[in-house]
Design a protein around this nucleic acid. Structure first.
Length: 120
DNA sequence: TCCTTGACTCAGA
DNA sequence: CTCTGAGCCAAGG
């Protein structure tokens, strides 16, 4: 639902940065919330430690409401699994499979094989 | 007003 | 590999 946890110093800028990174994930690859968070520049006024603890959830919050041109389906959790439930989760799996992503019998993606290597 | 519930990750066992 | 609990905060019942 509308859980915001603690918000980043500049929520707007943070979301923009997150969307920008997600847009650069190529089809057939996936990235974790933590990976995205790690690519966003740490906002001023927050310790790297706190950032690491909460940024992944901020990323989730950013994904909860993103522009139509953002491939939100390519963002999953650190376990290689979809964090959505119900129809949204089924939808995400459909989209990923249509890109060639393979799911485990445990509904899990092999990150060794499909994880995005980053912008570089 | 209290309790539950989240687009999360990490360290332990 | 799987299962717990901690860290944090806000909306809804």
């Amino acid at each position: 639902m509308a859980q915001r946890y603690s918000s980043p110093p500049d929520p707007h800028a943070f979301r923009e940065a997150v969307w920008d990174i997600v847009r650069s994930i190529p089809p057939g690859s996936v990235a974790t919330y933590g990976q995205i968070a790690n690519l966003v520049k740490i906002p001023g006024g927050i310790s790297p430690q706190d950032y690491r603890a909460f940024a992944p959830r901020w990323v989730g919050g950013a994904m909860a409401s993103c522009p139509p041109d953002v491939p939100w389906q390519r963002v999953i959790n650190s376990q290689g699994k979809i964090s959505l439930s119900g129809m949204a989760g089924a939808r995400q799996r459909e989209l990923l499979e249509s890109e060639g992503i393979i799911f485990d019998e445990r509904e899990r993606i092999d990150l060794k094989q499909f994880a995005w290597v980053g912008p570089g």
